[in-house]
Structure formats: C-alpha cells, structure tokens
Amino acid sequence: MVRSFRDALSRTLLQIAEEDQTVIVLTPDLARAVRIQDFSAKYGSQFVSGGISEANLVGVAAGLASVGMMPIIVGFSMFVAEKPFEQIRNIIAYPDFNVKIIATHGGICVGKDGATHQAIEDLAIMRILPQMRVFAACDVSQTESLIQTICSSTGPSFLRLGRDEAQDIYENDGCITNVGGADVLRDGSDVAIVAIGTMVGNALQAAEELEKEGVDAAVINAYSLKPLNESLLLSYFDRCGCVVTAEDHLVAGGLGGAICELSAKKRVIPVECVGVMDRFGESGNQAELYEKYALTPQAIVAASRKVMGRKHECE
C-alpha cells in the first residue's frame, strides 16, 4: 500500500500530545504544508505558530525545553535543519536540550519545487553534531514508530521524512524501532545493501533483480543513522565482504559517509555509494529525478555488481 508520510506525522503527533501535556509543537508557517493543521486546531495550547522565522523558532524551542516542555519542531528539512543550523548547534545540541526536529521534504524526492527546497545535506550536517541523534523513516509505519522512539528518549533528535507517499515496507504497521537500531529486511551473503529513508524500497527492488542474476543480496535499513548499529553492520561487512549504500542525499557526509568511516576504521572492504553526487537537484517529479540522479533500483544493481567485482582489492 502507498501511504503519506505527512498524514502519519499528524496522526502520531495527536497521539503524543494527548498522552503528554508537556509536548509542544512548533512550526514556521508550515502547518498546512506538513499537514498538521488538525493538530493546531485540536491542541492549540500545545501548538506554537512561529511565523516564517526559523532561527527564532529554534531558540524558542530551546527556551521551552529549559523550563520543562518537550518541543517538537516540524517543517521542511531545508528550513528547520539547514537554515537554522548554527542555532541548532549552539542552543539545542550543545546544551543537550530535549528538542525534537521532525523534517519533511528530505532529499530530491521533494520534486518540482526544485533545488532550493531539496535538502540533500541535512543528514550530514545533523550527523556531525555531538549529542544529536539522527533518524530517517522509510514508510508510514516506520514514521509512526520513530516519532514514538525519539519522543520517549531524552535529548535532541532529528527525524527525516520524505515529502510524499511511500510504499509500505513494514506490513500491518508492524515496524518497531530503537535508538541505535537497524533492520535486516532481507538476508544475503554476496553484497550488503545498506539503505535509508525513501531509498529502502529501491534497495529491496534491487535485491530482487540481483536474485535473478544469482546474487544473494542482504538489505539493511539503517534508520538510526546516529547512533549507527555498528555491530550489526560489521557482521554483514564480514559476511558479504562488500557494501553498497543507498540514500536520497549527497553521498558525502550522509549514510555513504558514515559507512565509509565505519569501513575504513573497522573493516577494509570495498564500498560503493548510491546517492546524489556532489551536485544540486532541480525541478521534476520524483521518478524523473531518481532516474536522472541515479537513485533507482537499477543504479543499486549496477553499484552492487561493481562492488562485488572489487572484493579482490581487499583480499
């Protein structure tokens, strides 16, 4: 089934606000755009309209957290993660405030709005911040679970969602998440495909294609980018001997960067990164953009073939 990230967001925030009166949701004039207008109507006393002033909104969230509330900032990733980066660094992450940032519109999947609205650096800049935890959801069930997970743990967290709909990966709303967790969605021993967010579905499709060629690919959803589930990943590095990463994000600094760092430090194995290559996006629909920017199942298949051919380099 194909369902919307943003509808899941609204539904889950309503549940959380109902259970915890200290929850307070802030948005920079994007309540309609992220579809939480139901929330603002029903829980006005737990909602803050910030206007189009993201830097201030981050500071306000810090102040709210300092007096005992749990602020959840919701908006487009470009504007709630990238624009107020310095504020997030100095007044959320550094003082370790219990502020959650839930960012929709992560990646070039944003589509027709074009490059200015396509956050392809957000995972990288959030991941380098000490004390910040970083997550990305691949479908509706995982969105709901990750919102519960970040809200039930103390400290700053960043959760990235896609813009539109996603094919269900987890059946019957059965996704369970943990801080530092990762899910093996498909076991395999020839190549480990590590994917995140909207690329998890494409990774699974790639694995099916590879199976037709007799390649046994594992698919791991590394939804907790920080902390990363290193032990699980290392066990698949050992089993498969090579890795492909897949993300709708620059390959530098995001999941690709994280996996290259882990590999370089702990296991010397070949890594190929599927993602946006040191360039900005443009307008187009998601399918067209994924084709042009090589974020398709076919691109993951090609990267898998290539990385398997490089195993001898590390022998």
Partner: peptide, 9 residues
C-alpha cells in the same frame, strides 16, 4: 529567542 521560549513556557 530563548528568553521568548521561557516566557511562552
């Protein structure tokens, strides 16, 4: 901004 957050809180 943080002072505003405290006062709103």
């Amino acid at each position: 901004s943080t002072a505003c957050g405290m006062a709103l809180g």
